[in-house]
Design a binder for these strands. Structure first.
Length: 388
RNA sequence: CCAGGGGUGACGGAGUGGCCAAUCGUAGCAGACUGUAAAUCUGCCGGGUUUUCCCUGCGGAGGUUCGAAUCCUCCCCCCUGGA
């Protein structure tokens, strides 16, 4: 049901092109999942999604649960019908919210680098607003107590009905100490074993590697997770205190995972990171960058990111020979900016659509370049404009 | 013409004797964003190249006061009601 085939292996790196079979069709890798946290790709009307080249989406268990969305899905149904997307969908377990609503929120930090420049990067294991116990995690939502456990997350993900689901994990913070990260990793491993006790032959359960930015922890986690009987792996948690550490984390983790199974790098997806990660053997990504930055007026083009504010007087389309809805209809940068000023939902739709096309095309080019053994050339071309 | 209410920085709109170069919002400028607390967030936004410093400044001109965007006088303009 979830066979993964490596179609081509790059000779100079760990990059490979593959194909993953799912109940909603085959997925060519490397591929990037666009984020549809609450059951919709933000700013994209449901009937417009099929017109965009997205091949994979990821939805979120915590958010679908708290917003009472899961209750609407009938037994035997799946999220595909609600997102109006009949291609593969994955669901995140809620493990990221253990971080983003916990240490991430308390410390104002993201999973890679500090969100705010100059942020105090000293270790901090205190101030977690969430209570994390052996059993699971308790959240406060809208005055309610929401509890997620490995069993609960899997139960909810079964109802959601995505093709690929993730084991419930504790995503750690870049500020967490070695000792904290180690304990969180061990807890994640125990939670994985609980997830694996729940039979599920309709969905691919990906186990998640933790261990933060610590070499021996990443290696220990990859060894432990890598020997489990799962169809694929997620690489999650803190990816260090600088961009460069992402690569190190992958170099520690991926060689210890079985080559014949797909690896998903959770949450990553800036252009330069995609190349660095694919070269290290990552097959799947998910990232809010294409959609969120679109809403923040950042447009991706073959010549780098462009902030719409910089080109707001231009009477040219966003990008020549782009097949996104905005460019195809010859919408000019000035017109798009006016939609933004008026807060017209069309602004977000057009910008998001443009970035989805860019990233979908980018991933296709990455795949093709691996099959053609031309990945270095593509990387060089793209990194001229996406230096990071 | 009479009565009443107003004129504040690009715009909207606070402030009604000192803590006011003047809250706040918008626009503008510069950044950020990586399993979406995010159509969000941060900084700047009268001038002097940094400033705990100086200058100009709340329709205009005078005045009262140690001190005025805030009080008084006259003038100009806007709105509402009445003739």
């Amino acid at each position: 049901m979830f066979d993964f085939t490596v179609l081509a292996q790059d000779s100079r790196s760990r990059a490979r092109a593959g194909s993953l079979t799912t109940p909603h069709g085959d997925l060519s890798t490397p591929e990037l999942a666009f984020v549809a946290t609450e059951g919709e790709v933000k700013a994209i009307p449901a009937d417009k999604l099929a017109g965009l080249p997205a091949n994979l989406l990821i939805v979120n268990t915590y958010h679908l649960y708290t917003k009472r969305f899961i209750e609407k899905i009938p037994p035997g149904g799946s999220i595909h019908d609600y997102v109006h997307f009949q291609k593969p969908i994955m669901s995140d377990s809620g493990g990221f919210q253990v971080f983003s609503l916990g240490f991430g929120k308390a410390h104002g930090i993201g999973k890679v680098a500090p969100i705010f420049p100059g942020y105090d990067l000293r270790s901090n294991d205190a101030d977690n607003p969430l209570s994390i116990t052996e059993e699971g995690v308790e959240f406060n939502f809208d005055g309610r107590k929401i509890k997620l456990t490995p069993e609960k997350s899997i139960e909810l993900q079964k109802k959601i009905g995505a093709d690929i689901i993730f084991a419930f994990d504790e995503c750690t913070s870049p500020l967490n100490s070695y000792n904290y990260t180690k304990k969180a990793m061990e807890l994640t491993h125990r939670w994985l074993e609980r997830c694996l006790r729940l039979p599920n032959d309709k969905q691919a359960l990906f186990a998640v590697v933790q261990g933060g930015h610590f070499a021996d922890l990443r290696q220990a986690s990859a060894r432990f997770v890598g020997k489990q009987d799962v169809p694929g792996f997620g690489i999650g948690g803190s990816l260090g205190r600088s961009k460069e550490e992402i690569g190190r984390v992958l170099d520690w983790s991926i060689p210890l995972l079985p080559v014949e199974k797909p690896r998903h790098l959770l949450g990553i997806g800036q252009v330069e990171d995609i190349f660095a990660s694919v070269e290290r053997g990552v097959d799947l990504f998910d990232c809010v960058v294409p959609t969120r930055e679109a809403r923040h007026k950042v447009l991706y083009t073959k010549k780098g990111k462009v902030n719409l504010k910089k080109i707001k007087t231009s009477e040219e389309p966003l990008e020549a020979d782009c097949r996104c809805p905005a460019c195809k209809s010859k919408l000019t940068a000035r017109q798009l900016y006016e939609y933004f000023l008026k807060k017209d939902p069309l602004a977000f739709y057009y910008a998001t659509g443009h970035n989805i096309v860019f990233f979908a095309d980018l991933m296709k080019r990455v795949r093709d370049s691996i099959l053609d053994h031309k990945l270095p050339a593509l990387k060089e071309e793209m990194l001229r404009y996406y230096g990071g």
